[in-house]
Design a protein around this nucleic acid. Structure first.
Length: 350
DNA sequence: GGATCCTTCTTCTTCTTC
């Protein structure tokens, strides 16, 4: 295992150092300090295993030495393959540094904030489009490190829940995410509800989404001038597309907003893995898409919790956004090198 | 009508001691 991880981790892509403003640290502390679940060992018959425990505890000197462990590693995994050490001082740059912003658009174009938000539906046409999506590109260019941890997590979950239980669990978290997004979409497109500001009491909110909506209610109070909801964006030159959750002003700043649900607290931007790349990809596409006449320089990732505790909001300013844009371009280049024709589904969770 | 697509999520060392 040691050998395996050493090789896998050396190939991972560096992501810019994350800095973020968190809307609330309390909930994370609260969650982390909650009582642990019962230990799986609490049901073990300690009397029955007492001799085994004694024999393990009385062995003061391990029969294993670093040399014997190395020999064992060599036997099991083969010789160590030393991966190239990535240069830390010079992060990789995309071959073509395509601009994130659109020079033909002013930073704050004269776009009226009033009126219903745009909602451009995805129209793939009759034949299968060759335009890949943001999700597909990110999924197929995961680092070996990410694949390793995701696979490990999946194995552990299956050993705990069984194949069927894991399938149900996955479907359940997907469904919750969909219900939450759908409820938010209704709220954000409803001018009346926005004016009332009693979002968690909205009658059309399904019971399954109420905790999440309550979780983001303090964020929604700072969201104004919704310009797009669940709207398709396509990059004019780089040939990729996606569906942006929301474009609106958050505390006065125009942002691409990505809503997420999570079972675990995510108090830092670094806890959101590739989500900032997704946001940068959407913003860059929107900036070049003729269906939109303005451009967006900032991002916001909002992580909502089912129990209603305050969501974490991670702002991505324009400087950070341009860093994520570069990393996104690298992933895009990597995807194109892979060849979209060999696009078998490598999703680690099915 | 059926098939397909875009999303929806999931990861970060691991153990002991106080």
């Amino acid at each position: 295992m040691f050998v395996l991880s050493r090789v896998l981790f050396a190939g991972s892509v560096m992501v810019p150092e994350c800095t973020s403003l968190t809307a609330c640290h309390f909930s994370a502390v609260h969650r982390l300090s909650s009582p642990r679940r019962n230990s799986p060992y609490s049901s073990v018959d300690s009397e029955r295993y007492s001799s085994l425990v004694k024999s393990v505890m009385s062995s003061k000197v391990s029969a294993q030495t670093p040399e014997s462990l190395q020999a064992e590693d060599d036997q099991v995994y083969g010789p160590v393959v030393k991966a190239q050490t990535p240069s830390r001082t010079e992060p990789r740059l995309p071959k073509t540094l395509h601009p994130f912003l659109n020079p033909e658009r002013a930073a704050e174009a004269e776009e009226p904030d009033a009126g219903p938000p745009a909602r451009i539906l995805l129209n793939r046409g009759r034949g299968r489009s060759s335009t890949p999506s943001v999700s597909r590109i990110l999924q197929q260019t995961l680092s070996p490190e990410q694949i390793f941890y995701l696979e490990r997590w999946k194995r552990r979950m299956i050993s705990e829940l069984g194949e069927l239980g894991f399938k149900e669990y996955s479907q359940n978290i997907f469904r919750q995410g969909k219900v939450f997004h759908s409820a938010l979409e209704d709220i954000l497109t409803s001018a009346e509800t926005l004016r009332d500001r009693k979002l968690s009491e909205a009658p059309e909110c399904p019971a399954e989404a109420q905790g999440y909506i309550q979780s983001v209610s303090h964020i929604l109070e700072d969201v104004r001038a919704v310009r797009a909801v669940e709207s398709t964006v396509q990059h004019a030159a780089l040939n990729y597309l996606g569906i942006v959750d929301c474009v609106a002003r958050y505390r006065g700043v125009l942002c691409v907003i990505d809503w997420k649900t999570s079972e675990k607290p995510k108090p830092f931007l670094s806890n959101t893995y590739d989500n900032p790349l997704q946001v940068a990809a959407y913003a860059g596409a929107l900036n070049s898409d003729d269906n939109y006449k303005y451009q967006v320089e900032n991002g916001l990732i909002v992580v909502a919790y089912k129990d209603g505790s305050p969501a974490h909001a991670h702002q991505i300013n324009s400087e950070l956004m341009s860093e994520y844009w570069k990393t996104w371009l690298l992933r895009l280049e990597e995807f194109k090198e892979l060849g979209s024709s060999a696009s078998s589904d490598t999703s680690p969770v099915k």
